[in-house]
Design a protein around this nucleic acid. Structure first.
Lengths: 243, 243
DNA sequence: TCTGAGACATGACGCACATCATACGCCGGT
DNA sequence: ACCGGCGTATGATGTGCGTCATGTCTCAGA
């Protein structure tokens, strides 16, 4: 299903560490966690490598423990689409696993050494049959995904490219950004120009022009860890409420 | 929460009728259905009226029994976005109900006398706590929604307006279309030009030009019940795999 | 140290499309 | 029968953006 990192898993990726980072696991009762623990496995994937590929048969629920991952789909026209960028703690895919169907997208690691925990479908489904908190936690997870995908649709429909880029950056800032003492917002996510283009439904050249313009106007700069928003008010205006 | 139709509900909107049309209800065991039945209520909403409005507090899971509904959000720029069009049998909103948060969009009836069944959140949550088929059915429902929203993102990212319109029509044809003896596909959904524009992230004028062009090329026509695809092969080509 | 690959950047050009304006047809109400 | 509102349609214009090409910089490997 995916390339297993050659280096053995770091000792700190214990099940308890995963529990501390994954809301779904935190919501489970002690008995459920105990029963689930022996079946959980970990994988660490290098940047750019797939967690899974499109049309893979998925037999595990996959939660992100560390790093970010993107859900991609290639179109026949050659253009790629990024459906979503997932943050630590989130469920990577529910639809294909729940429906016993092949994966409809490819999941790629976006940071070095992205770590996921895999929970077998059979054990998860048995657990939610027997446990109210487990079922509620999984529903909470999938409804969170719904809201994020809905927000993506609003971004993509918001108008011309500059507004779509602005809307994306505003949302990423709200979702995973960290504000420093100067009021700047660091988005800790290394996004190439092609990534931004795939997220905003445009071409890499147009995205480069947009980001260069935003840098020239001192609104957004690109740092080594990811975009830095230096004028959040202006960016909000450019996003026009779609962020 | 919404306008209640002045005419009393038609006798045929019984709970049994709702069960026959809503997959989630069909998946429930007899005992669960029996316990749920007294709490289910029905509403019939005229075309254009809201099932609920943005920021409403939702206390019920709402399933569509008859007709279609659209989930809309207005942006600060004045542009409206249609997040999704829902078909009979589907759950209209899970996120806000599950998360005890205000509705993030407005739900509007798209046909005359759209009918919904409302199931109180408390009773649904209690039921999925106690019943494996119920929890599985609700997860199946929300994961179906994920896949549809993912497909919407692909449509919106597919390129220029004509391709986005084509991708939308291809998907609607697959989802709710009916093929007649001549091979034409009737999409039984009255969509105004403004609706199509809101679904495709463009303006009403551009959509009118696109639909007029498609009609001139004898690919898609607009009938009284909704769009009619007269050349599915050409439309697939225009959609470029994003349908 | 040198080279090649990958990512970012810029230029030129032509088409797509948003915006604003106006016209037409249909339907419902008076 | 007439009028007004709504939806569809068309025209004109200017800006946005996709496409193709070329240049520059950085980094890693030989």
């Amino acid at each position: 299903m995916c390339v297993m990192s050659q280096n053995p898993p770091r000792p700190r990726w214990s099940f308890d560490e995963a529990v501390s980072r994954v809301p779904f696991l935190r919501a489970l009762e002690a008995g459920d966690l105990k029963r689930l623990r022996p079946y959980a496995t970990f994988r660490t994937i290098p940047r750019g490598q797939p967690v899974w590929s499109r049309d893979d048969e998925l037999s595990h629920y996959v939660f992100l423990v560390a790093g970010h991952a993107k859900l991609c789909r290639a179109c026949e026209t050659g253009r790629d689409v990024i459906l979503d960028v997932c943050a630590p703690g989130e469920l990577l895919c529910a639809s294909a696993v729940a429906n016993f169907s092949p994966a409809c997208c490819t999941c790629l690691a976006m940071d070095e050494d992205v770590t996921v925990v895999l929970l077998p479908r059979r054990d998860v489904l048995r657990m939610i049959e027997q446990s109210a908190p487990a079922a509620g936690a999984l529903l909470h997870e999938t409804s969170g995904r719904d809201m994020r995908l809905g927000r993506r649709i609003v971004e993509l429909s918001s108008g011309q490219v500059e507004r779509r880029v602005a809307a994306l950056l505003v949302r990423l800032a709200d979702q995973i950004g960290a504000t420093d003492h100067a009021g700047h917002v660091q988005i800790p996510l290394r996004l190439s120009r092609q990534d931004l283009a795939d997220l905003c439904g445009t071409t890499m050249e147009t995205t480069i022009r947009t980001m260069t313009k935003l840098a020239r106007e001192d609104i957004v700069h690109t740092g080594t860890l990811g975009p830095i928003i230096t004028n959040r008010i202006r960016l909000d205006l450019l996003a026009g409420g779609a962020g």
